[in-house]
Amino acid sequence: MRIVATVIVALIVSVAGVLAGAWWAPFVAGLVIGVMQPRARFAIPAGAGIGLLGWALPLAAVQIQYGAGSAAESLAAIMGFSHQAAIPVVLTLLVGTLLGLCGAWLGSAARSLVQPAPSR
């Protein structure tokens, strides 16, 4: 339960940070998860998930409030991928995911330096 609560809090902090303009919040949340959780095989996917949702939920809010389709098409055109609106969506989610994942990975690696992972 404590693990789940930690992840939920990290996710809330991440989303709140992104909504406040701190796009790097998932990285920090992932870093905290990585440091706190002794098992990297759990911490890193969790960090990635937090990063993904940390950016996906605000993007979903944009879609619900204003409709993001036209913006996605425009961004795709600017990026040189006209008529492929999925590309900026995927890229956006990928950035969020990578931020969370890298945060968690770095946190886990740092933790392993000072406290080796417990044996099975």
């Binding site: 992104v18 909504l19 406040a20 605000p58 944009v62 204003y66 913006a71 961004l75």
Partner: peptide
């Protein structure tokens, strides 16, 4: 990429701006 694709303050704001 962080600033540009941030769903809230990045280029996605063109969705809100269009409304």
């Amino acid at each position: 990429l962080g600033a540009a694709f941030n769903p809230v303050t990045g280029a996605w704001t063109m969705a809100a701006d269009a409304s």
